[in-house]
């Protein structure tokens, strides 16, 4: 368990540092890359929890698609090299307050729910097949609801983007 704790601490500190740099850096592409580091770190934490499918999905969807689209959008519009002075908006103190409150609530909820519970030393491993089985049996209706929601979002985006 010692090795796991050390690796967790290492990854978690990288994630925290990258998250901090995401909001403080003055270069918009660097900010996106720090966000990639945050998401990759979270993927690594999923691997440590033996949630291999979630980890791969994290890489595939968030890093491979969402962040690529972010960068694509940036490059299609301005793609500025170097620092932008107006990258930090005027409302940053408000945003800081919101973020701190949210973080405090989440930490309180986690601590309140689990107290000092320890992870089992010999956990049950849920394989990709188990995840697939439960998504398409127990959680079928929520799964379909989410896909309808995504379809609605897709059509909404098309409607908004088209002029006529």
């Amino acid at each position: 368990m010692v090795a796991q704790n050390i690796i967790f601490g290492f990854i978690a500190s990288i994630v925290a540092l990258s998250a901090f740099r995401t909001v403080t850096t003055r270069n918009i592409v660097h900010a996106a890359l720090y966000l990639v580091a945050v998401l990759a770190g979270l993927g690594a934490l999923y691997v440590m929890l033996t949630a291999e499918f979630v980890a791969t999905t994290q890489f595939l969807v968030y890093i491979g698609a969402v962040m690529v689209l972010f960068l694509f959008g940036i490059m299609l519009t301005r793609a500025p090299l170097g620092h932008l002075d107006d990258l930090t908006g005027k409302q940053w103190p408000v945003a800081l307050g919101v973020a701190t409150t949210l973080g405090a609530v989440l930490i309180y909820a986690l601590v309140d729910a689990f107290h000092a519970a320890e992870l089992p030393t010999d956990p049950v491993i849920y394989r990709t097949a188990d995840v697939g089985d439960s998504v398409f049996s127990t959680y079928l209706i929520p799964f379909e609801a989410v896909s309808v929601l995504l379809l609605a979002a897709l059509i909404g985006a098309v409607v908004l983007a088209r002029k006529d």
Binding site: T56, L60, I63, G64, A65
Partner: peptide, 11 residues
């Protein structure tokens, strides 16, 4: 899936 993930990072 690893192949798909890696090839999406290669971009």
């Amino acid at each position: 899936l690893l192949l798909l993930a890696v090839s999406s990072i290669a971009v």
